[in-house]
Nucleic acid binder design. Structure first.
Length: 411
RNA sequence: GGGAGAGUGUCCCGAGUGGCAAAGGGGGCGGACUGUAAAUCCGCUGCUUAUGGCUUCGUAGGUUCGAGUCCUACCUCUCCCA
């Protein structure tokens, strides 16, 4: 179905990663004849990345697999400015120490997907703070700013420029500059990103042509939503993070296990590295058999992030919990002191386990019959847990609904 | 610079013009049905030490027994004219 000649573009196209490409033929040609270097920018406002970032990460993964060089660019410099595109809240400005901490957490994730230099690969991790922090404002205006004409700037937004707009504009210029700088430093010729990044990437291409007569390319991925139209990876409860200390491998596995039928094939292509014919076989499963495909999806996707062993353990725990009804000791566990356990109200216990966010919510869930202690529905909100509630294994199993379980263990 | 309008339950949208913990959606969570799916139906969706107490309608003051609602100032956003 695709006419690409290079492995790289072929794989991305077949698996559904491509939304737009600038000058596809020229890029295809280059990717076939030599190793190209490409980058994707990541924001480091948090200590982890969530599922929303998974798609770009997979693009870098395939880039490396098909023989090219990926660069993960951390926005250490731009984060110091704060991102003006989000509304008020995300505009917080972080200190250098916080950014440094975040970078460490994020780096750990990339290590699972890319082989960096020193670990037998050629992937690079760059930080735009390296060049942005030392920029001289006057020089920058002279060398870079002049390429952004007033006309062009006006075409982006309203005539009236508020302070805020100026910051937003600067942000765009800085992102464009990143591309040019990376091109100069590493020979990087391709920037990838989500479809919302198209404008910024193209600005970078433009700037590259003006400043150093470089031929640069853009490739964007489609915005991934579930079949029901929801954005991925964000629930009211919180984002689905990739770091194990924020979202356990078990919960991560469960997230994928609960994928809607209509998304299974697409997600297998995007978020696992299974061969396409294998995916085709799984996608052909009908009715309840598609659950087998979901399990494969969950295990493979979890293995990418948390490793094969953790994925298998999560699959095993799930099987025992859901299919055999026994409780496996691998469920998420919350430790609680013996003194506290001696006399704790159910409401508090569920809050401590993190299954509900307040005692008020616990109360409501009890009214709706949604809470269970050791598989027995809680009917009395004044119920008190004591050591007598411990099962033979010395734990108490708390459940919210049918799917979410936490073990309470005396410390 | 001049003119018009808007900011509501800390997920989003959005009614509300003196009695309000505040209509209605979406989303989310729980229940039923299923296949740990979707669709559908039902319940819930400020906090709490709970027949009570406390905190919420951009921010700060004011009027009033009582303010999301009226008055004043300020902040932010959108649109129109320069």
């Amino acid at each position: 179905m695709t006419a690409y000649k290079s492995d790289f573009l072929n794989v991305l196209a077949e698996r559904g990663f491509i939304h737009q490409v600038s000058e596809p033929d020229a890029l295809d040609q280059i990717a076939r004849s030599k190793t190209i270097t490409a980058y994707i920018g990541f924001d480091c406002t948090a200590a982890s990345l969530h599922i929303g970032s998974l798609l770009p990460i997979m693009m870098l993964h395939w880039l490396q697999r098909t023989g090219h060089q990926p660069i993960a660019l951390m926005g250490g410099g731009t984060t110091r400015v704060g991102d003006p595109s989000g509304k008020d809240e995300s505009r917080r400005i972080l200190t250098d120490e916080m950014i440094g901490e975040n970078l460490k957490g994020i780096r750990a994730i990339f290590d699972k997907f890319l082989k960096f230099e020193g670990a037998g690969g050629n992937a690079l991790m760059a930080n735009n703070a390296d060049w942005l922090n030392s920029l001289n404002y006057i020089d920058f205006l002279r060398d870079v700013g002049r390429h952004f004409s007033v006309n062009r700037m006006l075409s982006f937004d309203s005539v009236k420029m508020r302070l805020e707009r100026q910051q937003e504009l600067s942000f765009m210029i800085l992102q464009a500059y990143d591309f040019v700088e990376l091109n100069k430093r590493t020979g990087c010729v391709l920037q990838m990103g989500g479809s919302d990044q198209w404008g910024n990437i193209v600005s970078g291409i433009d700037l590259g042509r003006r400043m150093s007569n470089a031929q640069l390319f853009a490739l964007t991925a489609p915005l991934i939503t579930t079949s029901s139209g929801a954005k991925m990876g964000k629930t009211a409860a919180g984002a689905v993070w990739l770091n194990a200390d924020l979202v356990s491998p078990y919960d991560y596995w469960q997230y994928w296990r609960n994928t809607e039928d209509g998304d299974v094939a697409r997600f297998l292509k995007l978020f696992t590295v299974l061969p396409l014919d294998e995916i085709g076989r799984l996608a052909a499963l009908q009715g309840s058999e598609i659950n087998e495909a979901k399990k494969v999806l969950a295990t493979e996707a979890t293995a990418m992030v948390h490793g094969r062993a953790a994925a298998d353990a999560a699959a095993d725990t799930s099987r025992r919990t859901f299919e055999e009804g026994t409780h496996a000791e691998n469920l998420p566990t919350v430790e609680i002191s013996g003194a506290e356990l001696a006399n704790i109200g159910v409401l508090t216990a569920f809050v401590r386990a993190g299954l509900v966010s307040s005692t008020g919510e616990a109360r409501r869930q009890i009214k709706g019959g949604g809470l269970k202690v050791n598989d027995a529905t809680v009917t009395d909100e004044k119920m008190v847990l004591t050591a007598a509630a411990l099962t033979a294994d010395g734990i108490i199993k708390l459940s919210l609904g049918k799917k979410r379980h936490v073990l309470l263990k005396p410390a």
